[in-house]
Design a protein around this nucleic acid. Structure first.
Length: 322
RNA sequence: CGCGGGGUAGAGCAGUGGCAGCUCGUCAGGCUCAUAACCUGAAGGCCGUUGGUUCGAAUCCAACCCCCGCAA
């Protein structure tokens, strides 16, 4: 037994974006853990003006007086990090680099990863988006021991979470981040005190998802191929990036002809329409898009036209075909 | 100087040389059991900025600022 309050665990944190920060913050504020340092990606050019910007994790760490280290995918630098920080535990959330095995095996309490799916389902980079796209009713958080393979390590705990009808990649992610930030400390405590037995994954049941599945290219709506139900899920999965989109028909007379339309929020709407799939029309103060299913349209609640700001259905209709 | 779209009332949009418009919202009043309903009325603009052309510019020309999409 180890009383972590009396003897906090020297922990090294790996992460990059805002969701990593929430996890890092939870551990940093937890007296049972001492964050000896964080490893994150180097500053990158961001936005239209390509301003060099540190990762969110780096920002938080510098602000909180935590030492920051960049490994830059360099094996020597991973070794250097171990020499400097001598971690008893490594915690990883959304780091984005392949981590060498010797690094993972160094800490006595192993390297622990937080993954947003019920492993072995959806191993890989975009499990939340994949679960929404597939129309799953439930997903989860897997706390697992990192191994050389992609999300193949033994699982300490799975926390289940329902996927709500209106959940987007963003709303669901926020919920999972909050839950995992809240629970992680206790789970790690139990793990360190040997109250948890790691469970091997049944690799025969493994499924995978890849970053390239969530791309601008894959966010394009193919009106003649996709069912309305799928498009609705696509819209929710692509929030906040890259956002489901399509090119509006060139033949229409209005000013939006040929422009890119981005869909931020849609819902299925029962209405019979003979219009060509992907045509914008309005009825009873509602903005609708026809689909390949003549009896189901998509009601558009939040949208953005190329060159314009993101607006609501109501705002759009105020200026549409008047 | 990467490519392109745009800046007109609080919001969304018309308006290509001749009095500043539409829909929504806001405010006041009316109608209704009721309303994101309907009726009546009102307020609200340096038409992104600066200069130029013209009898006259939101509109044509030049420069600049800002917003957005694409690309990276």
């Amino acid at each position: 037994m180890r009383n972590l309050i009396e003897k906090p665990v020297n922990t090294l944190f790996l992460g990059t974006d805002w969701e990593s920060v929430e996890t890092l913050k939870a551990l940093h504020q937890d007296p049972r853990f001492t964050i000896v340092g964080v490893i994150t990606t180097i500053d990158k050019p961001v936005g239209r003006k390509q301003i060099m910007t540190p990762s969110k994790v780096k920002e938080y760490a510098l602000h909180s007086g935590i030492e920051v280290f960049h490994t830059e995918k360099n094996l020597d630098r991973y070794q250097m990090a171990l020499d400097i920080f001598k971690p008893e535990l490594i915690v990883c959330k959304a780091f984005g680099e392949i981590v060498p095995e010797f690094f993972l095996n160094y800490p006595i309490y192993k390297a622990i990863n937080v993954h947003f799916s019920k492993l072995p389902k959806y191993r890989g980079a975009v499990p939340i988006q994949k679960a929404i796209l597939e129309g799953d009713k439930e997903t989860g958080i897997s706390i697992m021991i990192m191994s050389a393979g992609l999300d193949e390590g033994d699982v300490l705990k799975i926390i289940k979470e329902p996927i709500l009808e209106k959940d987007t990649n963003q709303t669901l992610r926020e919920r999972l981040v909050n839950i995992s930030a809240k629970e992680l400390g206790n789970i790690l405590d139990d793990w360190i005190n040997e109250k948890i037995t790691p469970v091997k994954q049944d690799s025969s049941k493994a499924t995978y998802c890849w970053q390239k599945d969530i791309s601008k290219e894959n966010a394009e709506i193919k009106w003649n191929d996709m069912e309305p139900e799928y498009i609705e899920r696509l819209v929710r999965a692509m929030i906040p990036w890259p956002v489901a989109w399509c090119k509006l028909d060139m033949n229409t007379e209005n000013i939006y002809s040929g422009k890119i339309l981005k869909l931020f929020e849609v819902e299925l709407f029962k209405n019979t329409s003979e219009l060509k799939p992907g045509t914008l029309y309005h009825k009873d103060n509602m903005l609708l898009l026809s689909t390949k299913n003549k009896d189901i349209s998509l009601r558009v609640l939040q949208l953005q036209i190329e060159g314009k700001n993101k607006i609501s259905e109501r705002d759009f209709l105020n200026g549409f075909e008047r």
